[in-house]
């Protein structure tokens, strides 16, 4: 189906252990879906598998982005095709300035032989940084090097804004953020919500969902989606924890 990010019966292993055991969900464009789940349920594995990290082996199922198989594309092709992952732990790239990094990512999206318009690029980057409350000094600093946790996450959002993906997966973007940084990051995401874009927000805590209000909440447990509901589901999980979900799963087993 086009205009959706469709994960179908996804199975994946890491070091021979099956982590995803037939995960299915569909994010239509224009919607924000949240995935919540206890530690070890497979949340970050899902994110890494979709991005194409080589430590994870896909053993079954598929992920279709607007009808196109993600797993038929290389890591960098996925990004250029419109997939974006905001990392839980963004990497530090010594000696590579933030500006040059973003510029290379934008350049990679241009046809062969076409040069990026540097002036327009900087102008746009500065405007986006202003919106995210990022100081200009971050353009010259090495990517994420010496950044605080909040600065790194803000930088992920800056990359997302500059790369304008069709679908964005946010992997525990709230972890390590104080409430002010959380609000800034949420504001950046909310400003990007559009009928042309889908979001999958992975989080352990409901707190983030106070600021990025999801259309649909999925509960991931033991490698599968075991419950899907509205935003109230997140509140119930926050209030009652995950035990009742586990009990339901076990009762149905």
């Amino acid at each position: 189906m086009s205009d959706t990010l469709e994960i179908k019966d996804l199975k994946a292993t890491v070091d021979g252990h099956e982590i995803l055991k037939g995960l299915s969900l569909t994010v239509p464009k224009g919607e924000v879906h949240a995935i919540m789940g206890p530690n070890g349920s497979g949340k970050s594995t899902l994110a890494k598998v979709m991005a194409g990290h080589e430590d994870y082996e896909v053993t079954g199922g598929s992920v279709l982005m607007d009808g196109e198989e993600l797993f038929d594309m290389d890591v960098d092709e996925r990004s250029r095709a419109g997939f974006f992952l905001a990392f839980q732990y963004p990497l530090e790239i010594p000696g590579v300035s933030n500006a040059n990094f973003l510029r290379a990512a934008r350049q990679a999206r241009l046809p062969e032989g076409e040069e990026i318009d540097a002036v327009a690029f900087y102008k746009e980057m500065y405007a986006r940084m202003d919106e995210l409350g990022m100081d200009r000094k971050f353009t010259g600093r090495s990517v994420n090097e010496g950044f605080s946790g909040g600065e790194k996450k803000r930088n992920e959002i800056l990359q997302m804004v500059m790369l304008d993906p069709k679908y964005a997966v946010l992997d525990e973007t709230d972890s390590g953020l104080d409430i002010d940084a959380l609000k800034v990051v949420a504001h950046g995401v909310n400003a990007m919500r559009s009928p042309e874009r889908g979001f999958l927000v992975i989080t352990h805590y409901q707190r983030l969902l106070d600021y990025i209000v999801p259309d649909v909440v999925h509960v991931l447990f033991d490698g599968r989606i075991v419950k899907t509901g509205g935003k109230d589901l997140a509140l119930k999980l926050e209030a009652e924890g995950y035990d009742w979900v586990k009990d339901e799963v076990l009762a149905n087993a």
């Binding site: 194409g52 960098d76 990004s79 250029r80 990392f87 990679a108």
Partner: peptide, 24 residues
């Protein structure tokens, strides 16, 4: 992997990281 996840092809990613290593 991080650079590639932003759409930068592998060879270019290696070049950027290596240049960055020296420029540091």
């Amino acid at each position: 992997f991080y650079l590639r996840s932003r759409g930068i092809p592998t060879d270019e990613a290696r070049r950027i990281v290596s240049c960055g290593f020296l420029a540091e």
